[in-house]
């Protein structure tokens, strides 16, 4: 009986392993063929098909204020959504938003369940192998927040002082590498880092500029002295790999929109209420797809 059970278990495991392996191969084969045949595979909708259907399907976040969220009336809002609305208008179609999560953004595109992802999608080389990124419409860098009384406005001022960071963040890596003279005080959780700053256990705190900007606005006596530092990550719309027509349309639109300073208007509408006037829109906004350092 015991041997029988063992045999059963082994058989089950073998079948699962085979299924996973076969599935894996199939997926790779599918992406390969799509890459080689380009738009021959119709796992995505072409520009014409979208226009004909009268509706573009856009994947956005529904719980990441102020970029993609749902307001109290149940409507999608935010910096990403503002752009999505404009894209749909320029396509001449209605827009249908789908709520996506960080973990499934790529899958939504690869299966053609959405036409465009506009979910605060940071451009990385790994992701670029799976999806096609359009020109960026936003950028994220590091920010440094410090008390008004001893405001830090340049990284050189931090020499010999204590900077609070959260473990595993870009800030930790950046300062370790470029400013070894800065003493780092590391914490596991964000709440701990803010508490440490308020308690005066460090001279400043650094993480993504969007984070510290929003926090400084709510906490009197603290200001983001450095609003953009380090390697800039860009944020862009993404489409199914090989959907060149749609990609070109988005890129052309972004270039065209630069003429009317569209993303600055977007900023004023959606981000300014959160980030206030302390920050220059140019620290976040990318106009016409051109990132200025």
């Amino acid at each position: 009986m015991r041997i029988r059970k063992l045999y059963l278990l082994l058989a089950a495991l073998a079948i699962i392993a085979a299924a996973v392996f076969a599935g894996g191969c199939k997926n790779e084969a599918a992406t390969d063929s799509q890459q080689s045949t380009g738009s021959g595979e119709t796992a995505f909708r072409s520009l014409d098909e979208i226009k004909k259907s009268g509706e573009v399907i856009v994947g956005v976040f529904s719980d990441k204020a102020p970029f993609g969220y749902i307001d109290k009336e149940g409507n999608y809002q935010g910096y990403d959504v503002y752009f999505g609305n404009r894209l749909a208008k320029d396509l001449g179609v209605k827009v249908k938003y789908v709520s996506v999560e960080p973990a499934n953004r790529v899958e939504y595109l690869k299966t053609g369940k959405v036409d465009i992802i506009l979910a605060n999608f940071t451009v990385t080389p790994e992701r670029a192998e799976q999806v096609d990124f359009a020109l960026p419409y936003m950028k994220v860098a590091l920010g440094v927040v410090s008390p008004d009384g001893a405001l830090i406005t340049s990284p050189d001022q931090l020499k010999g002082k204590t900077l609070i960071v959260a473990k595993g963040t870009t800030a930790e890596t950046y300062f370790t590498k470029h400013y070894p003279d800065v003493n780092l005080l590391k914490f596991d959780q964000y709440t701990e880092t803010y508490n440490a700053l308020v308690d005066g256990r460090g001279d400043a705190f650094s993480t993504d500029n969007t984070e510290v900007l929003a926090w400084a606005l709510k906490n009197k006596g603290f200001t983001v002295g450095i609003t953009s530092l380090g390697d800039t990550d860009t944020i862009a719309a993404a489409v199914h790999k090989g959907n060149k027509e749609l990609l070109d349309f988005i890129n052309d639109d972004i270039k065209k929109l630069a003429g009317e300073n569209f993303f600055h208007k977007d900023y004023e509408e959606t981000l300014a209420p959160v980030y206030g006037t302390a920050v220059s829109p140019d620290d976040l906004v990318v106009e016409g797809g051109e990132v200025k350092k």
């Binding site: 529904s62 719980d63 102020p66 929003a214």
Partner: peptide
């Protein structure tokens, strides 16, 4: 969604 929309 409601919590995040009112986060600030």
């Amino acid at each position: 969604q409601i919590i995040e929309a009112n986060r600030y």
